[in-house]
Simulated assay, not measured.
Amino acid sequence: MLKFVKDHMATIEGIEIYPIISLSIFFLFFAVLFWWVFTAKKDYINKVSKFPLDNQENN
């Protein structure tokens, strides 16, 4: 089965770009997320972190 898939994938033109695109999207997403975490304002983080607790107190 694996040989069939490997042989079939080798016949598709331009397929070698898909792993590069996927890795680029993956890296870009986590790089942006990492940047956002370190640049987020502390008061915003504190406000958002209290949402679950505020919701319980209101019920």
Rank of each mutant, 00 (worst) to 15 (best):
M1I: 04
L2E: 03
K3M: 05
F4I: 04
F4N: 00
F4L: 02
V5Q: 01
K6A: 13
K6T: 14
K6Q: 11
K6C: 01
M9H: 06
M9L: 15
A10Q: 13
A10S: 09
T11N: 13
I12P: 05
I12Y: 09
I12T: 06
E13D: 04
I15T: 08
I15W: 10
I15R: 09
I17P: 04
I17R: 11
I17W: 03
Y18G: 00
P19R: 15
P19D: 09
P19F: 06
I20L: 10
I20D: 03
I20S: 11
I21Q: 02
I21A: 15
S22G: 11
L23H: 11
S24P: 00
S24L: 02
I25P: 06
F26P: 00
F27L: 14
L28G: 09
F29I: 11
F29K: 10
F29T: 08
F30D: 02
F30C: 00
F30S: 00
V32A: 03
V32Q: 03
L33S: 08
L33W: 09
L33T: 12
F34K: 03
W35Y: 08
W36K: 04
V37L: 04
F38C: 13
F38Y: 10
T39R: 13
T39K: 15
T39A: 14
T39L: 12
T39Q: 13
A40V: 10
K41Y: 04
K41D: 15
K41S: 03
K42D: 10
K42S: 14
K42H: 05
K42T: 02
D43N: 15
D43W: 13
Y44I: 12
Y44E: 07
I45C: 02
I45N: 05
N46A: 06
N46T: 03
K50L: 15
K50H: 07
K50N: 03
K50E: 13
F51N: 10
P52R: 02
N55K: 10
N55E: 12
Q56G: 03
Q56W: 05
Q56D: 09
E57Y: 07
N58D: 08
N58K: 06
N59K: 15
